[in-house]
Structures are given as structure tokens and as C-alpha cells.
Computed example of a mutant assay.
Amino acid sequence: MLCLLVAQPEQIQDMNLMVMKKILASGCTPLIVTVNKPYKVLTKIYAKEGIGPESYFVIDAVTQYSGGVCPPSPRVKYVNNPSNLTDLGIAITELLKQMPEGKKCILFDSVSMLLIHIPSATASKFLHFVVNKLQLSDVSGIFLSVEKGLDPVVMSQMSAFVDHVMDYEQAQKQTCLL
């Protein structure tokens, strides 16, 4: 199952938490691809909600770009820049292989932030690559975006790539997103 979830800018963090809780409740192991918040910040946000770092994997494309320290961890891969799509794609492939057997899900946070770093056409091609990789690997994917944060062309293309497009309120009502 592949979903694009959109929310108002002030709801994005709440939506991320809600989605993480639903992913974990479904017995799925999440791989968070973050171009929005550094791993260090994400772990603090999740910890406040009782979500420990042992329950998820992360690809962090923010920390190095922002000049932060990237402590080694078997559950985290750092990409030097959100616009480095080659390394981002390699990191996704590598971490998916490292993850334990069973249900897996990618939480991509956030499509709209990716568009700050790369042109819309390039983002569409990359997201299409990711979607195809997930489908071939039988991995679910949830893509978060700020409502009205996507170029209309990217929005229409993403809508065609995924199985469902939902806003925050619709996603909250769903018992399972996968």
C-alpha cells in the first residue's frame, strides 16, 4: 500500500507521530526518510511519545547538510545533502536489506521539503523510482507533504504513483494506513 498524506504546515509533526504510531501498531518496521528534521531531533520527538529508537530505522538527509554531528548507528544512515538523490536511493536500498524480515514501511518526511532542494521534475522522477522500488520489494510507503506545498504537476504525478491520497483528518480516522 502506498499513500500520500497531506496536512497543513502546523499539522505535519502531529501527522508524523500519528502515522508512526499506526505503523508500529500494525506490526510493521518503519524506515523514516527525513529531509525535514535531523535524526537527533526526531528521536527526541518520538521518545516523548514512548517510541524508542530500537523500533525504527532512519535515513537522515538533514544533519550533515546542516553541519551537525553524525554519530554512527546501525539503524541510521546519513546522506550529506537532501539533493543527493543517488546516495538517498542507495541508503534506502541498503537499509531495506538490513531491516529484519517481516512487514516493512517507508515513511518519507517530507515530499514538500524535498522540493526546496531539487527541481519538481527531478523530485517526480526520484519519487517514481522510490515507489517502484517499494512495489518491487513488497514494502509499503507513506509520503508526507504540506498541503499546497507541492507543485500541482508533482501532486498529480504523486497521486498517480500511490494507491491513496488523504488529508490529515482522513488519515486520523483510518485504523490502518498500510
Rank of each mutant, 00 (worst) to 15 (best):
L4H: 05
V6F: 10
A7T: 07
A7Q: 05
I12H: 01
D14A: 09
M20E: 04
I23H: 06
S26Y: 06
P30C: 12
P30M: 06
V41E: 15
L42A: 08
I45L: 08
Y46I: 01
E49S: 15
E49I: 01
E49F: 11
P53K: 11
E54F: 08
S55R: 10
Y56P: 04
D60W: 03
A61N: 05
V62W: 03
G67Y: 08
P72V: 14
P74I: 02
P74M: 11
V76H: 07
N80E: 15
S83K: 04
N84R: 05
L88Y: 00
L88W: 04
G89P: 00
A91Y: 01
E94F: 04
Q98D: 15
Q98G: 09
P100K: 10
C105Y: 03
I106A: 00
L107T: 06
S110M: 06
L114Q: 06
L114F: 09
L114Y: 00
H117S: 10
H117L: 08
S120P: 04
A121Y: 07
A121D: 15
T122I: 12
L134T: 05
L144Q: 02
E147Q: 13
G149L: 01
L150I: 11
Q157N: 10
Q157C: 11
S159G: 13
F161D: 02
H164M: 12
V165D: 03
M166Q: 08
E169Y: 04
Q172L: 14
Q174F: 14
